Amino acid sequence: MSATTGTPDGAHVVHVVETLGMGGMERAIATLCRTLRARQIRTSVIAMKQLGAVADELRDMGVPVHLAGVPVSPPDYFAWRRLVPVLREVRPTVVHTHNSAPLIYGAPSARWCGVRRIVHTDHGRVLPDRRHIMIAERCAASVVHAMVAVSAPLAEQLAAHLHIGPHKLHVIVNGVNAVVPVAPAQRDRTRAAWFGATDGPIVGLAARLVWEKGLNVLLAAWPQVLAVHPGARLLIGGDGPERAALERIIEQRALGASVCMPGMVSDMAAFYSALDVFVLPSVSEGLPLALLEAMSMGLPIVASAVGGMPAALGPSQAGVLVPPSDVAALARALCETLDGLGRADGAIALGARARATFAREFTAESMTSAYMSLYGIRT
């Protein structure tokens, strides 16, 4: 579908989200807002339910943030009207909704307010969803001008389960700004702060601690990794509802000496710089920003073959892919990658291919250009 073109003069893109906590989707929105503003496009964000750490980040860069107070649980499908006065106040020319609840509530309110362009992005989910949710999404999708999936497999699921036609459905992969490595001295200090004076390799990831990330699978595989690489350490950054369960697994398997869970990470450059191998054992994904950030750093990557990760890593052999929930395969891939650290034909080559693939396909600039086309804005 070709978008109607226009000019940035008077354009105002308003993103509608459920919350603004420190998740991958919220960080993607912040990246998009930052890049749009660099192109002189006015942006605002409406959070339906609650604010969070990303709200502060947005405000720091000059993006207005509004809290609408729309209840999303239990569902009240007439509550979309609560968004109407907020939209009338901010006066968008484009409304961009993100994930299920903002689609259900945001799209009808934008249509009611006469917004000329409505775009929706699904950032990754498990389908089929509950029947009443999918019926509501199909109704809301009827007023949307463009539906975006962050990976081709997700687009196929949206087409099958939400009946989105090819004229409306687009794939726009996530993009991020490249992470700049910290100086070696800072890297050493960061590693020592988490694991003391260790010379062993550090495997890790930063993610929201939810079951979809497959961290229980990673902890099940970790003793097998330690049997081959006893000096290895595992770093799991982030927080979320699965934290207590993961801590119990670490205690039950006596992994405390080799596993660190520092909580939320504020300095991502220092975090990624501390790693020798990035791992993402998810059981369900769209196209995670953490994967792209690791690719931009040139880290060797071991990841599950789910969502958009095979398309990101597989064609250029930019990482090692394993079946989801396969403990033995994950342990084997991590051991082989650790064996190849420092080898030109091993982990070094993996990292170089990851960095080159990122620069070619997954930058924030390329993502923003694709969205601007759907918004009908050209510079």
Rank of each mutant, 00 (worst) to 15 (best):
Q224K: 13
L330E: 01
R131Q: 10
L234T: 02
M295P: 03
L334I: 11
G340Y: 07
H120P: 11
A207N: 08
A155C: 14
C335M: 07
V84F: 00
T43H: 08
Q186D: 15
R131K: 12
H96T: 11
A333V: 04
A197M: 07
A28E: 05
I236R: 01
C260A: 15
A344I: 15
T121K: 09
W211C: 08
S258D: 02
A28P: 05
A270G: 13
L169H: 00
S109C: 13
A55Y: 00
P181N: 10
G256P: 00
A347P: 09
R27T: 14
A197R: 15
A356L: 14
S151Y: 01
T357G: 10
V72Y: 03
K213C: 06
L219H: 00
G175A: 05
Q40H: 15
A318R: 06
V182D: 00
E293Y: 03
P262L: 03
Q252G: 10
S273G: 02
G346F: 11
L20Y: 01
R353I: 12
S266Y: 13
A146S: 14
W80R: 02
A11H: 08
P288S: 08
P315A: 07
V72R: 02
D129S: 14
C260T: 07
D9K: 10
E26C: 05
M309K: 08
D276F: 04
S73E: 15
T7G: 13
R208V: 14
A364R: 03
A221Y: 06
V65C: 05
D326W: 00
L36H: 13
L169N: 05
I133E: 10
A155Y: 02
E293I: 00
V144D: 04
Y371Q: 10
L341F: 07
V115S: 07
P71D: 08
M1L: 12
A254Y: 09
A312D: 01
M25V: 13
R125Y: 12
V45L: 10
G263Y: 10
E361C: 15
A232H: 08
S142V: 09
A311S: 09
H123Y: 11
R82D: 00
V115G: 04
I236L: 15
D345R: 04
L275V: 08
I104H: 08
A290D: 06
V171S: 03
P153R: 02
I172D: 02
G165Q: 09
E18R: 12
I164W: 02
R116L: 09
G314V: 08
I29W: 01
A11G: 03
R343Q: 15
L292T: 05
L219G: 08
P181G: 06
P75G: 11
R82L: 13
M295V: 03
D56T: 09
A328D: 10
A206I: 14
P230E: 12
N177P: 01
P85R: 04
V16H: 01
G256H: 05
A47W: 00
R138S: 07
R59V: 07
R243K: 06
H161P: 02
Y375W: 14
A3H: 13
G263M: 10
I29Q: 02
S100V: 12
V16Q: 01
G6R: 12
T337F: 05
S273W: 04
M48H: 01
S282K: 03
A311M: 11
